[in-house]
Design a protein around this nucleic acid. Structure first.
Lengths: 109, 109
DNA sequence: TCCTCATTTCAACATCTATTGAGATATTGA
DNA sequence: TCAATATCTCAATAGATGTTGAAATGAGGA
């Protein structure tokens, strides 16, 4: 995960429909669900859903596979968890020692 | 952390200067650093930095305190780590059992 | 009080982003 | 091959966002 990837990922997650799509796919699990079902769940037009699914896939947060007529989308879990890892990298310049309580909650997590 | 807070937070992190500011403050540790020092590190004008610092503070990702003439900004670590928690909530509809390997890496983390 | 330093506010402008509806593409079964 | 289903692409429009420079605020020291 580099800065550009992180920026793309955060931009993707900063849009209401896309954030909901990601949460839906996270809940759906590794099997994912077809684009149409995502659209139904969101109550959005096909072009709108397609736009946002493409956006999320370009950012690497979700992936797709074709299964007969449908295209199945699913969450890319490591990409999601990698975001916080990127944010927290080099936390406190390494001076952080959880045992001594020199740093905040996140360093301890 | 609700949906609106998450959207604000992700929008804040989707901008290059702001993402760098957050990473800088994460590295700086709980003591934080003055707005001017952040500006110097970014090589950006004071109004630009002030705009982005306000944006981040509104989103709850950083906090500020006055210390004599300077305003010291620091990262709000729980807000950052809370983001992924929000994303991963209800992962796999609870069907996920890490012990049996029915889910992906993130559920196991 | 006056001056300086540190930071914020404001308005104008340019740029980026999301939505819409129509049409194109790809897959399957009759 | 034809028709139906599922999804994607495209161009136009409207709205949101970032940058700039100048001016305003607020705190501390002479």
């Amino acid at each position: 995960m580099n800065e550009l990837q992180a920026l793309d990922a955060f931009a993707s997650l900063s849009q209401e429909t896309r954030l909901r799509i990601v949460r839906l796919l996270v809940m759906a699990g590794p099997d994912g669900m077809p684009a149409g079902a995502v659209g139904d769940a969101m109550g959005a037009s096909s072009s709108k859903i397609s736009f946002h699914l493409s956006h999320l896939e370009r950012a690497g947060l979700i992936q797709s596979r074709r299964e007969s007529r449908s295209i199945i989308y699913s969450a890319v879990y490591p990409a999601l968890s990698g975001l916080i890892e990127f944010l927290m990298k080099d936390c406190c310049q390494g001076r952080c020692d959880p045992a001594v309580g020199t740093c905040s909650a996140v360093c301890e997590a």
